[in-house]
């Protein structure tokens, strides 16, 4: 398994007495798309935040390409460049226009030449259909457009792995698709990604592997086909049933 780029071993996260993650083991291979599912509060988002060292872990270790991710390490900013993250809240920098939002990190962190960074930024924006918005400010964009810019802002750093934390959860339904399409496009390019989502059909379509978390543990890990058609554990079955129930209700209306 030489192509594993991210390894988690016994990752444990507690907030005070509350255990949120209890000994998570996970390997992510180059080019793999892992979708993390689970009921709210199960620790999925916390897991992503731990991988990017936005949260301190109490036990275990996380390695990206062999390099340990440690919130206290001096090289943390360097490791974080290899991890692209997109959050649920629209988190663009409101005082910068779209182009400056995208080029800030390449210019200041990677010290790339301005022309080079801008040229790549425009190319990436074009790919997500937002080249004409380069001069716009975040407040002039819709939620879906903001999230696409946030994705571009992460991509331009050439990350080894992308983390998506419920990026469509705060969007109006008609904007969910445009964002998910961009992520589908990334999967088609063979990007390594860990995705936390509540969009089950999207999860099924994009995932190479489903990781189901409940109560801070990985309860089930399988291919999307198997997970959605034949979940092994009762907890996964119950979880999927809540979605089924919601679907029934919606059609009844």
């Amino acid at each position: 398994m030489s192509d594993v780029i991210l390894t988690l071993r016994g990752v444990t996260k507690r907030f005070g007495e509350n255990g949120v993650l209890e000994g998570i083991d996970l390997d992510v291979k180059q080019g793999e798309v892992v979708v993390v599912l689970g009921p709210s509060g199960c620790g999925k988002s916390t897991l992503l935040r731990c991988i990017n060292a936005l949260e301190e872990i109490q036990a275990g270790e996380i390695r990206l390409e062999g390099e340990k991710i440690d919130i206290r390490s001096k090289s943390l900013a360097g490791v974080r460049q290899k991890i692209g993250m997109v959050f649920q809240s629209y988190d663009l920098f409101p005082h910068l226009n779209v182009l400056d939002n995208v080029t800030l990190a390449p210019l200041k962190v990677q010290k790339r030449a301005k022309a080079d960074a801008q040229e790549e930024a425009l190319r990436l924006l074009e790919r997500v259909g937002l080249k004409d918005k380069a001069e716009s400010f975040p407040r002039e964009l819709s939620g879906g457009q903001k999230q696409r810019v946030a994705i571009v802002r992460a991509l331009i750093m050439h990350p080894e792995i992308m983390l998506f934390d419920e990026v469509t959860a705060a969007l109006d339904p008609e904007m969910v698709r445009e964002v998910l399409d961009v992520i589908m496009g990334l999967a088609a390019q063979g990007r390594t990604m860990i995705i936390v989502t509540h969009e089950m059909q999207f999860a099924r379509a994009i995932a190479d592997r489903i990781v189901f978390i409940d109560g801070g543990h990985i309860v089930e890990e399988s291919s999307p086909e198997e997970f959605f058609t034949n979940p092994k554990t009762e907890r996964a079955q119950n979880f999927l049933r809540t979605f089924l129930f919601e679907t029934v209700k919606k059609t009844a209306e």
Binding site: N52, G78, R80, M85, F93
Partner: peptide, 8 residues
Amino acid sequence: ESAAALGL
């Protein structure tokens, strides 16, 4: 957090 995630 977004700034930190970008490596700033």
